[in-house]
Simulated assay, not measured.
Amino acid sequence: MWQGDDSQPGAAIYLDNCAACHRSDGQGYARVFPALAGNPVLQTADATSLINLVLQGDTLVATRTAPSTFTMPGFAWRLSDREVADVVTFIRGSWGNQAAPVSAHDVAKLRTDAMKAAYQDNHHR
């Protein structure tokens, strides 16, 4: 995979779930799907945002100059804590990115926190 270490456990998960939009070289598609290669947001010391994005997904809202809405699905229903940690670690360490790996424990904590927050939101309305 174009300068991504395909021997890492997260490489196959990336190919199966992410490469269609973000490409196998991590370059994405301009104005549609962001590049992961060289993306400083993905290389911060705290991987919370990226983990939450993989778990919950997100939507790029439409604007007057970019009228299409693009959605990244959440993968919490499909990927285990270990798989999310592996793919996040793969993204943070491929294509020139040089960020620290994340653990399944990090993912489990964020998944639990998100579930608690969703439960509270649904029961306090």
Rank of each mutant, 00 (worst) to 15 (best):
L79K: 04
L60M: 14
A12K: 08
P67M: 08
V87P: 03
G93W: 02
N17H: 15
T65E: 04
W95D: 00
A62Y: 13
V61Q: 14
F90I: 04
T69V: 15
G74V: 07
Q8I: 02
L50R: 08
T59S: 07
G38Y: 09
G28S: 13
Q98F: 12
F33T: 08
T69N: 07
G4M: 05
G57D: 03
A47W: 01
T48K: 11
L60P: 03
N52H: 07
R31A: 15
E83V: 06
A47F: 01
T71H: 12
S68R: 14
G10Y: 02
A104F: 15
P34V: 13
Y14S: 00
V41C: 04
H124I: 03
A66Q: 09
W2H: 07
L42Q: 01
L36W: 11
L79H: 06
N17E: 06
W2P: 06
P67I: 09
M72S: 03
S80Q: 11
A114G: 06
D121P: 01
F90H: 06
V87N: 04
N122K: 13
A117M: 13
D58P: 00
M115N: 08
T48L: 00
T63A: 09
S103H: 04
A20M: 07
Q98V: 05
W77Q: 13
A37M: 12
A76E: 15
F33K: 12
P9T: 11
R92I: 08
T48E: 06
M1R: 02
H124A: 10
R82F: 05
P9D: 08
M1F: 14
F70Q: 08
A35H: 06
F75M: 12
L53P: 00
V41N: 06
D86M: 10
G57M: 04
D46P: 03
A12H: 05
I51Y: 06
V84M: 02
G28H: 08
Q56I: 05
P67A: 09
R82W: 09
G28E: 07
C21V: 05
D6T: 14
Q56S: 14
V32G: 00
D86P: 13
S103D: 12
I13H: 05
P40K: 05
L79G: 02
N39L: 10
R64D: 12
V61N: 10
Y29S: 10
Q43M: 04
L60Q: 15
N97S: 06
G4F: 12
N52M: 14
A11Y: 10
A117P: 09
D121L: 13
R23N: 07
S103P: 03
H123Q: 10
L42T: 06
D46S: 08
A12Q: 15
D25K: 02
T112G: 03
L50N: 11
W77Y: 07
V88H: 00
G28V: 12
A76N: 13
Y29A: 02
D46N: 11
D121H: 09
T59C: 00
H124R: 13
Q56P: 02
A118N: 09
T48N: 04
D16Q: 14
F33A: 15
Y14M: 01
G74E: 03
H123S: 11
T44S: 09
A45V: 06
G10A: 09
A45Q: 14
Y29R: 13
I91F: 12
L60A: 11
K116V: 15
G4I: 07
R82P: 05
Q56G: 08
T44L: 03
A37D: 07
P73V: 12
A11W: 11
